[in-house]
């Protein structure tokens, strides 16, 4: 009987030592998942997800603390990429997708205070103090972050009209998903 106890203790001790060694040998530094998520995000640092930038949002996603549908500039493309990476079911975008728009500065009212320059996450507004500011339409993501700081409310959003110059083929429709609750019940059954 003592042989048996001794043998099992020995076996457990040897395996335990091996595991302990492998835990030290293969230690994981930092959070590699957050890095991968961060690479998928558009890096506009717009803060519309409720986090102070793309990196904090990526870390919250890696911890599983937030939904994957918060990124407005990324839109559906980012949402699907995140769903694919994290193996979660795609959910509808939190904010309904607004028609693409660009900011436009009213030249009559702008006082050249540079406040909107500092707010713009993508540096799409050019200008200097006491000079009229202008928006680079091709850089503007339509995030509306420049609207609140403007003291004279001279910025408004102009929807991008679809004309011959701007029209492009629509993205293919996502695969219809009408079995989502069926998936949930399957997980319980397994």
């Amino acid at each position: 009987m003592f042989t048996a106890i001794l043998a099992m203790t020995l076996l457990a001790a040897v395996l335990g030592l091996l595991l302990g060694y492998s835990a030290i040998r293969f230690r994981v530094e930092g959070n590699p998942i957050a890095d991968q998520i961060d690479a998928l995000l558009p890096q506009t640092q717009c803060g519309q997800c409720g986090h102070p930038g793309c990196r904090p949002y990526a870390e919250a996603l890696a911890r599983g603390e937030d939904e994957i549908n918060k990124c407005v500039p990324g839109g559906e493309t980012t949402l699907l990429a995140l769903a694919d990476l994290l193996g979660r079911d795609p959910v509808a975008l939190e904010v309904e997708e607004k028609p693409p728009a660009v900011a436009l500065i009213d030249e009559q009212t702008c006082i050249g205070c540079t406040l909107c320059l500092q707010a713009c996450p993508v540096d799409a507004i050019v200008g200097a103090a006491k000079q009229l500011h202008g928006v680079i339409a091709s850089e503007c993501t339509g995030c509306e972050l420049c609207l609140p700081p403007c003291p004279v409310e001279c910025i408004r959003m102009v929807p991008v009209v679809t004309d011959i110059a701007h029209w492009r083929w629509p993205y293919p429709r996502p695969v219809p998903r009408h079995h989502q609750d069926a998936h949930a019940s399957q997980r319980e059954a397994a």
Binding site: M8, L11, A12, L15, G16, L18, L19, S22, A23, F26, R27, V28, P32, I33, Q36, L85, L86, G87
Partner: peptide
């Protein structure tokens, strides 16, 4: 004894996978 061995091997795999493929580890 076998269950002990299997548990150790699985634990080892888990450590290894956490290092090599963190996303698969989470999925």
């Amino acid at each position: 004894a076998f269950i002990l061995v299997i548990a150790a091997v699985v634990q080892f795999t888990e450590t290894l996978m956490r290092k090599t493929s963190p996303v698969l580890y989470q999925v």
